[in-house]
Nucleic acid binder design. Sequence first.
DNA 1: TCGGCGCGTGAAAGTAAGTTTCATGCGTGG
DNA 2: CCACGCATGAAACTTACTTTCACGCGCCGA
Lengths: 292, 292
Amino acid sequence: MPEPGLIVQISGLLPALSPAEQRVARLVVADPADAARRTITDLATAAETSEATVIRFCRSVGLEGYPQLRIRLAAEAARRVEPPDARVVGGDIPPGADFAQIIATIAFNDARAVEETAQQLDPEVCEAVVEALNAATRIEIYGAGASGFVASDFQQKLHRIGRTAYYWPDVHAALTSVALLGKGDVAIGISHTGTTGDVLDVLDVARSRGATTVALTNFPRSPIADVADHVLTTAARETTYRSGATASRLAQLTVVDCLFVGVAARNRAKARKALEVTAEAVRSRRVARRRG
Amino acid sequence: MPEPGLIVQISGLLPALSPAEQRVARLVVADPADAARRTITDLATAAETSEATVIRFCRSVGLEGYPQLRIRLAAEAARRVEPPDARVVGGDIPPGADFAQIIATIAFNDARAVEETAQQLDPEVCEAVVEALNAATRIEIYGAGASGFVASDFQQKLHRIGRTAYYWPDVHAALTSVALLGKGDVAIGISHTGTTGDVLDVLDVARSRGATTVALTNFPRSPIADVADHVLTTAARETTYRSGATASRLAQLTVVDCLFVGVAARNRAKARKALEVTAEAVRSRRVARRRG
DNA sequence: TCGGCGCGTGAAAGTAAGTTTCATGCGTGG
DNA sequence: CCACGCATGAAACTTACTTTCACGCGCCGA
């Protein structure tokens, strides 16, 4: 591990160096990134000295040779770069923002939603849910609006590894299907706010049939908690409608991903096989190379 | 300004590289810091290829030569703060992993996909796309399989702020609809691999009608680039099917989010109003309090 | 004042690293 | 089955880096 502070070290022993080496050292300290870009001849010329002296300088600071100096300088210079800059955490995009700012702000918030969701996700609850999913003969997933995408995604994932899972975009269909669940089956309801009536209804029915009910929401104390045996929570802070709730979507998908991997891990070989088979199935739809 | 994400860029270009170059690329991506320390001969040997190929690889990723690669890699490696504990970056979940580990690994990779995507996203391309979206009288979005969710999400977002946008899950429907596009309209194709035949066909038709075509893919040098006026790239490293491609989904959604915010920002007041109206529309579907 | 001594220095020789060129062989499409 | 083109490594070549060596300058003692 390169002990940090090569630049610091150099400026420390600057006075101990010979005049010609000092000229080199000063250039290096003044702009490490620039020095890293130069060739030895180039740097020697800039310091009004010979290549030999540059090498001597490298040895003086304890390095093998010039290439080593270059990469150390590049590394050091990179480390120095201040972390991006003040992003309005969870805040709105300022009106005059340029696109780079927009991207940075969104990415920051999105990534944070994912990370914070993972942090607060309860492994034990996850495990219990995975257990239930594994034991279930049938799985129903329901979500309305934006959460419907996530429900659908989850359904597809489970299906791909050979689990019987359903997602009905239509509440009526969902209610009908859920009414056929029994003990040992699982119903999952997804609702960011935890107050989506339709989702509650679906879980309600599922529960009354003896199925295990699972809620995925951002608000653990919301009504959905009352109809769920297990509550999984996301941690998206979105307050405004600014970003069309993408952060919460990402958080939900992350949770779904965790559950999916958990289920797949229970039967590694079979899941892997299933994934390969399904991947193979769409291969013919791919074109081989760039077209003329 | 060292444009960020060389590693990210390399993994994006991976499939476009020749086999021998891919071997080099994989070594570089696997351990950038180590690669930076090696001499070109050394690296070539490790990749079981010749120095010439290493040079070709450097050129392929847009660098002058090998020394430049070394420096960039050193810089990149330094900037990268190693994840707290040993998480197999982009790797598989170890068989005996407990749920806390699974969650940590997934969240780490998911969050990284979002961040790295943002880093390498070209603001100018985004801007151009937003411009086109704003000017369009009609927008068509198409994606197959998992990318279909993202297409659908985008369609819904645009629709919510009053833009005329379509998403047809069926290729035939999509082709038909796209055939009716004209100059000034926009077609967006989403394909993680960039090789999905159906998506290419859709963009092809759109282009032939004079519409502006946009591609969203993880691999900028894939066939989809040939039929797109603007190429937006994600930066997900997923190699295995482990997580059912969630990371790439998140990356795509992030890009979509950026575009959406960009479009909305052009007409702030109107967009805000539209969002409020649509939010209000589903309010009646929400339950007020926890139910006894 | 002069002669040696040693250190800093750059020129030049020498070596290693990086780059270009080219011939081969393999796979693809006609 | 042939022709073409592309990927590839061997070898020639160039550039960068390293070592060697001799010069010169300043210091010291005679």
